[in-house]
Structure formats: C-alpha cells, structure tokens
C-alpha cells in the first residue's frame, strides 16, 4: 500500500475516488507530486475509473490545469475514464473560459461522478 501526501484514495465499488488534499494547487513541486501520485494509481495500481474530488480545492493555477490534461490523456491512453467533481464555481469558471469543460468529464459531486463512471 503506497502512502499519499497530496491525495486521499477510497473505493466506491469499481470506482476509485481521489480527493485532492491541498486547498491550493499552485506550487510546482506540489503539482508534480500530486500528478505522480495519481499517475501511480493509473499505471502501477491499474485503476481505470477515477473520480477526482475537488471539494477541498479553493484555487488552482494554469500549471495545475496542464497536469490534469496530462493525466486525462494518460487515462484515455489506458482506455480508462477520469471524472472531475465538486468543483467550486470560481474554478469551474476557469474550465469554462479555457473551454476545458469540453475536454474533461465534469460532474456536480462525488455521487454523480461515481454513478457516471459505474454506468
């Protein structure tokens, strides 16, 4: 069992719920660490349905968006599915402005993300 610093991982049936711990996804080293931990779930642990829970996240930078895009690509490369959920309105606006709401599967909350991924 690996230890994570940037994420909390739990299982809801076949879906892995990944709660991002940090309030601000900002610092380059923290972004890399978070990315590595999630990538480990995909590549080492073979998880193929991930719900990324943003309920703790109050702020993210464009570098964090870049990391999410990279993770989404990796997941799609493994024929897996990644959903983002519980995103506060200000951050959702960032996804809309950049049109990344077209790239990511964005759900209202964990329950909706789990239901979509388990369908």
């Amino acid at each position: 069992m690996s230890t994570h610093r940037r994420i909390d991982v739990s299982a809801r049936g076949p879906v892995t719920v990944v709660q991002i711990v940090d309030k601000k996804i900002l610092d380059e080293s923290a972004i890399q660490e978070m990315g590595s931990e999630i990538l480990g779930l995909i590549e080492q642990d073979g998880r193929r349905s991930l719900a990324l829970d943003f309920s703790h996240v109050e702020y993210l930078s464009s570098a964090a968006l870049g990391k999410l895009i990279t993770l989404d690509r990796k997941m799609k490369g493994h024929q897996g599915r990644l959903s983002l959920c519980s995103i506060r309105p200000e951050i959702l606006e960032v996804f809309k402005i950049t049109k990344l709401n077209k790239v990511f599967d964005i759900r209202k909350d964990v329950a909706e993300a789990v239901a979509a991924l388990d369908a």
Partner: peptide, 14 residues
C-alpha cells in the same frame, strides 16, 4: 484544447 500549457496569459486577460 489538450495541449497542457499556454493558458496563463489568457486567464489573466479574462
């Protein structure tokens, strides 16, 4: 859309 970088200035402007 799936290019990881190049969004900072656009967000600042927005």
């Amino acid at each position: 859309l799936d290019v990881p970088n190049g969004r900072g200035v656009m967000l600042m402007r927005s």
